[in-house]
Structures are given as C-alpha cells and as structure tokens.
Amino acid sequence: MSAALRPVRVLSCLLFAGILAACGARDGRQRAEAPPLGDAFSSEDTYARDYRVPPLIACEAARRALLGQGYVIAKQAADSLEATKVFQPQSDVHTQLNVRATCVERAPGGSIVFLNAVQDLHALQAQSSSASVGVSMIGSVSVPVPIGSGSANLVRVGSNTVQNQDFYQRLFDRIGHYLPGTPDVRPPVAEPDVPPDPVIIEPLD
C-alpha cells in the first residue's frame, strides 16, 4: 500500500468506528428509556372501581368479600385494609397472596376502591451443619468424623404484583355483592315435596 493511501484508510476506519459508537450509544439510550417491566399506564383502570356509597361502607363490603373467599384480615382502618391468603401448590413451595384495599371519597357521596394484590413465593431451603469428633487412636492421633445435621427454612424467592384483570374484576364484583341494596343472588332453596291433604268425602244423609 502506498503512503498516500494509508492516511485515507485510517481516516475511513476512524469514521466507521465513530458511526458504530454512535449507533451503540443510541441503542443504549433506547434500552434505558424502556418502561419498567409490567408497567403500563392506560385508560383502563384495572385496580380501581367507583361505587355510589361512602368509603366506610365500601371498605366494609371489601372486608366481607375477602372474608367470604377465605382471606384473613391482617390490618384494618376506616379507609383501608389488608388481607392474606396462603396456598401450597407443592410440598416445598408456599405461596402467600396479600391484598390491600384503599377506599377514597369521591363526590358527590361516592367512593373509589383501589385494590392491589402482591403474590409472594416461598421455597424450602435446607441448611446443613457439620461437627467432628475425635477418635483416639495410637498415641495422639485423632480422626475427624463429620456428623451431618440439617434443617429447612422457608425463604422468599419471588414477589410480584398480580396483574390479572379477571382476578380484580371478580373481586370487585364480590364487593358490589355486599353493598347495601344488592339483591340476594343465592340460589333459592327447593321446598320439599309435601303430599296434599287427603280429601274427606262425608256420606249423604
């Protein structure tokens, strides 16, 4: 290669490297500007519903709805409550569902109920420990003998906010069921079959 073309090739390589660096920086900015995982602000309010009752009555309906589904009320205030429910899908897996309801006043005379459910996943993790004993041999020689002992503890291995719309919709429907004025939707109790009274015919005189 001639000495005259060498500076041109070097300049071309530098320009190409600069273009690649600029593209990489732009891609890095795009990746950095990506929204958080699972976060999407849209016109649909998955976690909120309006009710035409005061917040105190709405929160009481939420409490009854959660109690009716097997939840245990952990904390309760006038305008909020927290409830938990545990599951064990496998022998070494423990799941806890935590639901929080917040009731906010909305004019005129209504309220907004916000629901948020967080699912915690726990798993059994074994913790082993060892000890050694000295076995006297000839002279002062000792042989270490390991003795293993273990225990298992529940350790939280995951936590996520529940985003299933059907889950929240069913819970909001149950809250509406316990509001005043809601008709009883339980199936009617079938009345037992009772034979009619016998007809008594009196003889003619």
Rank of each mutant, 00 (worst) to 15 (best):
S2R: 07
F114N: 09
R29A: 14
P198W: 13
P192S: 00
D27W: 07
L15K: 06
G181Y: 05
L11A: 15
Q119I: 01
A61K: 01
T95I: 12
F167L: 09
L20G: 12
Q169M: 06
S42F: 14
R29N: 11
V53M: 05
R64L: 15
G150M: 12
Q88F: 13
G70Y: 00
R170F: 02
A123P: 08
Q90F: 08
D92L: 10
N160M: 11
V118D: 02
R156W: 06
P35I: 07
I138V: 15
R52A: 12
A62L: 01
Q169G: 12
G24D: 15
L121F: 05
S129V: 14
P35L: 06
S159Q: 02
I112E: 12
P108F: 14
E44K: 12
G28S: 13
Q119W: 05
H122F: 15
S142K: 03
G176Q: 03
L37I: 14
C23R: 07
D166N: 07
P187F: 13
D166S: 04
A62Y: 02
Y51V: 10
S159P: 01
S42P: 04
S142N: 06
S43M: 11
R64E: 10
P198S: 04
G68K: 01
D79A: 13
P89S: 04
A21V: 15
I200M: 09
I112N: 05
L171M: 07
I138F: 15
V99T: 01
S91W: 11
R49V: 11
Q30R: 12
G110Q: 04
L121A: 07
A83M: 01
V199G: 01
Q88H: 13
A123C: 11
V143T: 10
A131M: 04
E191S: 05
Y47E: 15
Q76E: 14
G139P: 09
V99L: 04
C13H: 13
V162K: 00
D50L: 12
A48N: 15
A58N: 03
R106I: 07
C13F: 14
N164H: 09
L154K: 05
A65N: 02
A25N: 13
K75L: 13
S149A: 09
H177P: 08
F114M: 08
A22L: 13
A74H: 11
A123F: 06
G150R: 12
K85I: 05
R156D: 00
Q119E: 07
V93Q: 05
F114C: 08
Q90N: 10
A83H: 04
R63P: 01
G68R: 03
E60I: 02
N98D: 15
D39N: 13
S149K: 02
N160S: 14
V155S: 03
R31M: 10
P187K: 06
A152E: 15
